[in-house]
Every structure is written in structure tokens, then in C-alpha cells.
Design a protein around this nucleic acid. Sequence first.
DNA 1: AATGAATGAGCATTCATTCAT
DNA 2: GATGAATGAATGCTCATTCAT
Lengths: 189, 189, 189, 189
Amino acid sequence: MAEFGYHHAQVSRIAKAAGVADGTVYLYFKNKEDILVSILRQTIGEIVEKVKERTALASTAEEKLRSLVGLYLGELGVRPELAMVTQVHLRQVDANIRREIGEIMQPFYHLLDEMFEHGVEHGVFSPKLNRRIARRLVFGTIDETVSAWVLSGAKYDLAALSNEVVDALLYGLTGPLSADGSRKAEATP
Amino acid sequence: MAEFGYHHAQVSRIAKAAGVADGTVYLYFKNKEDILVSILRQTIGEIVEKVKERTALASTAEEKLRSLVGLYLGELGVRPELAMVTQVHLRQVDANIRREIGEIMQPFYHLLDEMFEHGVEHGVFSPKLNRRIARRLVFGTIDETVSAWVLSGAKYDLAALSNEVVDALLYGLTGPLSADGSRKAEATP
Amino acid sequence: MAEFGYHHAQVSRIAKAAGVADGTVYLYFKNKEDILVSILRQTIGEIVEKVKERTALASTAEEKLRSLVGLYLGELGVRPELAMVTQVHLRQVDANIRREIGEIMQPFYHLLDEMFEHGVEHGVFSPKLNRRIARRLVFGTIDETVSAWVLSGAKYDLAALSNEVVDALLYGLTGPLSADGSRKAEATP
Amino acid sequence: MAEFGYHHAQVSRIAKAAGVADGTVYLYFKNKEDILVSILRQTIGEIVEKVKERTALASTAEEKLRSLVGLYLGELGVRPELAMVTQVHLRQVDANIRREIGEIMQPFYHLLDEMFEHGVEHGVFSPKLNRRIARRLVFGTIDETVSAWVLSGAKYDLAALSNEVVDALLYGLTGPLSADGSRKAEATP
DNA sequence: AATGAATGAGCATTCATTCAT
DNA sequence: GATGAATGAATGCTCATTCAT
């Protein structure tokens, strides 16, 4: 199927992108899987570090979520190749590795959980919401947002969507309610 | 097509699952991509048809969304092999095909859009919410839900999560507000 | 080291020699090792079968040995490619496989052992000779004989050496002694 | 160069064993082949020197052969890594090099030839025996003996086999004859 | 002289696709 | 229509060799 031009993350392509010979890659990584997984681990690690710093300064759960989403979209938004790796190449590997990916995402999921706990404690987030579902709501939405951006060719400003995405995550499709039960006009002023 | 196993969707495996010889597959499909894309097209087509029937009977946008999510998770929940195809195998192909997948999802996205329009018109959904973001909220969340279920080995009842997922989609992390602005105790009674 | 032109038994070379495409080889063999080991197993198997038939007809241990060596050199002598495999390619694989080769040679070694027992029982072979050393004497000598022939380019008649080789194996460097202790003039009349 | 392990004689392993960096090897050797061939050349050279000294003192052909075999097995028997090189690594290279190996063995073969001439002149070795076959008898047998020892893991005392091997080489399978034509009881008293 | 990071040719193996039957 | 044996392009990985320091 040469006509379709498969765009797998061949090691030779990665090497060429890095400006080194194929064999050089194996001086630094165990194998192809290790390359991709290492990229993800570092990317997630950096994002998690920044989010921790930033959310420590935020007092409300809403602000924390806004930091988290903003940083996630911001980091990937300025590095489309990284987004390509997380959204495309890493999904081309087999299910075993996808489970390993789950482990790498743990620190990020922990952040989400902590933030959620904080929000519930302060009466901001719904105590009725299943934590697992909350995590999928947040991660699923931002993941889909990044995927769409990558597949579009990374043509627009990803981080610019952050506030609207957070509004959706906070209030859902119904949007924020005003005290009298009517729809509020403005979510993000 | 029941025992894909957890790795690549080799054509020979698909043929064996279908009870035909390898070559026979090519009498009905142009190539491997065509097989996977056809499976997705049919699956989405069936779901869209059922959702159309069901949502025609639903009067409120919330009911419509509950039908849509319930049917989506219900259909994939009883056919793990299909979910394997949509969540794993189809992501292993190149970015070009993933864009084609976007086209196949169009009817489903239209449903979402119509439902959203209906909700906004009837004052149920927030008119402030970006349609594109709304779509990613809904699709991203259910996609992540199905993916997690598939990667877990399809061990639990996927459809059973439907109502909680819809609650999250409708009201977000903050959950539904009571008229007086306090957190409501129960989302799905 | 392209200048030296390594002559490893590449699978592609084997495939080309067999007149099939590279991939075809893997329809019949598990891997490269399996190819080489299978060739040896079949070759040795055929030789052992023939030797069994022939030695059953021979009454003396000397005749049996003559049959065995004659058939061994005869079989490889008419199939230089086989000899190439046994003497060159199979030695290029790692030590683990060389130990497996030992197992494949077992039937041949058993033949040698039986023949030796027969010779000792009938007073023809020395009862003092260590069986293991006897085996290495016989196999080492014919192996070296075949190797030299292969490395020379298989230019002469290998089987023609058989009788002289057997004389050497039977009587060693001292040659057969006449009854009075002097050197006999003729070993193989 | 003590722990070759049982697989390929990678240059990096040789360098590490020699306590130098990979690149340093190429200051002293042309290439990998040159390394292995040099090891063989030196080993054989040393053995040949020692055999020459020793056989000069020996008066009979039998004593000379006993010295030669004893020294060969003795030298390799105390240096299993050298035996690994001669029996395993050197056979993993291509046929061209194996022919070069033949040249390196020349001094050793000359020794064998001289010894054989001496034996024939003094009526100890059979004048009927083909010199080439005699050489293969001796070298094939000791080579096979060393190979078996190496592949067994060099677990037993190789030199201890020397006298029995020489007996086999001198008298063959039939063993030494007593003057009256009956089997002699003892070869090596 | 010595180093060791970088190289890239070389090869085993897989699997989507074809086509003679 | 159906088959499945045969194909060969594609790719991950190894390791002998080089060369800037």
C-alpha cells in the first residue's frame, strides 16, 4: 500500500528528524517503544511539574482546572511534533504499550483527582460525580481537542480554546445556571 | 470477528474470523484500510439510525442525549470486537485515514449538532457554548470511556455507565445546581 | 567490511537458491536456524537410514565401517551444497545451536557406537579404546575430510577417498601389521 | 579476553576484555577478521615452537606424536578462550577466511608431515598411508576433541585425554596387534 | 596513542496483497 | 465466486568501523 504512504513513526524517520543516523538512536533508547514512551513520559512529566507549581498558587478548584487545561493545551500547542507523538504515533503501537501509557499518565490523573477532591471539599465540584467519570470527562475532552487540532494540521491556536473548554468541563452542556435557575449569559467574562 | 486478540488487525485474522480465506476478503474490500473503515461506517451508521429513531420520540434535549449516549455505549458494550476496531485498530493507521474517519463520523456529529440546537432553542443548553467544543466534550468523553473499557479487557458493563456519563456531560464537574444555587444532591434519580 | 564479501547463509540467498521469494521461506521454516537445522536433520537422517540398510548386510565390523564412511562421503560428495551447509553455514551460528546440532547427530553417533560394539565383540576392534574417543576419531576424520573438500571448491571425487580413510581409521598411522610384526605392504588391496 | 560468552566475538567485547576502548583495537588490527586470525596465528605459532623444541628431544615418531598432541591439547586446555576462538568464532567467518586459516595452519601441518616422514623412515608409520589423509586423521581427531570440550563448557581436563587420543591415532580402531596377531591388552601402559 | 560516540550497511522477519487454480 | 500459496516491500535492530577530540 505504498500509494497511501503509511505515516508510522519509523525509527529511521525519528532518527532523521533528530538529525542522527539510525543506529545512533539505539545508543539512547532501548527500542522503538522506548523512544515513544520516553517522549510521552518527559512531556507529561514537564506538564505535571508546571501544573503543580501553578495550581499551588491557585486558590479555587476552578482556577486550578483552568491552569491545568491551559498548561496542557499550551505545552502541546507550541510543540505540534510532541502532540503528533501523543495523539498519533503512540496509538499505533499495540495494546500492551497502551496500557503502559496508562501508567505514565498516572501523575497527571493524580493531579486531576487532587483537584477534584479539593473542589468537592470546597463545595465547588459535585460530590455525586464519579471520580473515574470525572477524569474521563476532563481527559477525554482535552484529548479530543488536541487530536482534532493535530489532525487539522495544527493550524490554529490551541491554547486559545482553553477557557471555553474549561467552561464546558465545569458546567457541561447546560452551562452555568444563574441563581434563579435561568441560563446565565456569560461563562467566561 | 470475535477473537481479534489484542494486537494488530491482520487481514488474515479478519479473514479467519469471518470464516473465509485471506484472498476472499479482497473480493469485498479494496484493502485493509477499507475493511476497517467499512466496519466503522456500518457501526456508526447503525448507531445513528437507532439514535434517530429513538431521539425522535424524545421530547427534551436531555432525553435525546441520554438516548444517544446510551445507544452508543450500549452498541459497543455488547460488541467488544467492534470497540477494538474503533478504539485500537483504526488508530494504528496513518493520519490520512484518521481524517477519513472524521468524515465517517459526520452523521454522528450532525446528530450531536441537531440535539444541541434543539437544547439551545428550548433553553436547556447554554447558547454560549461553542458547538465545536460541545461536540468534543461529548465525543471525547464517551470515546475515552469506551477506550478505557476496551483496554481494561471489556470486563464490566459499559452501558451501565451511561447515565452518570450523561450527568457529567450535562452539568460538568460542578454538577447540577438547585434553584437556590446550592449543590443538588442527586443528579440521576 | 563489504570488501570481504561475507558469505553468510542469508535467508535471502537461500530463498534465491531455492527459486522462491524471501517470504516464501517462512511458510515452511520457523526461522533461519530452523532452515539450517532442518537441512542437517534431513541429510543425516537419510544417511543414517541408508547406512542402517547397508550395514545390516555387512557381516564384519570393517565392512560396516566401510559402508558408513563410504555412504557419508558419497552422499555429501554428490551434493556439495549440502556439504557447504554442514561444514560452513551451520558453524556460523551460535554455540546454542551447535549444541542442538549435537542432538541431531545422535542417530549417527549411535550407529558408530553399535558398530564399535559389534567390532569389539567379534575381536576386531580394540576393547581398550574409549568409545568417546573412537567416535571422535571417526567423526573428526571424516568431518575434516569433508571440510577440506568443501573449502577446496569440491573439485575432486570425495567418495574416492573412502577406502583410504577407512584404512586410516582402522589401523591408524602405524598401519596394519603383518603377523611377524613387519609392516604389511598393502592395506586396501 | 576471558569471558567471551558463548555467542559472537563482537569487537566491542574483545576490546573490553583487553581493557581498551573499541576504537583502540583498530590501531593494532586491520579489522575483526585480522583480530581472530592474529590470535590463531600466535596460538599456533607458540604451539609449533614448543612442539619443535620438544620433538627435537624425542627419538621415536610415537614420542613425537605424543608431544605434539599433548602440547596442542595442553595449550588449548588451559586457555579455553583461545579454544573458543579457534573452534567457534573463527568458524563464524566466511569461507575465504577459512581458507586463510588453512595457510596459518601450514607450520602445524609441516610438523605433522615431518613427523610422519620420520615415522615412515624408521618403519614405525605405514608407508602406504596417504600423507593428506594422515594429516586429516590427526588434525580432524584433535580438532573434534577440542570442539567437544569447548561445547561441553570446558568442564573437564582436556590434556588428560592426550594419551588415549594418541593411541587411537597410532593404531586406529583395531588397536595395537601383538606379534602373534592377537589383540594386545594394553596400548598406553 | 587512545577514546567512544556516531555511523550506516546489512539482515531476519512480517504481513498486505496478488493471482493461478 | 473462492481459495491460499506465493510474493516482496518495508522496517526494527545490530555491530564492525570511523574519526573528531
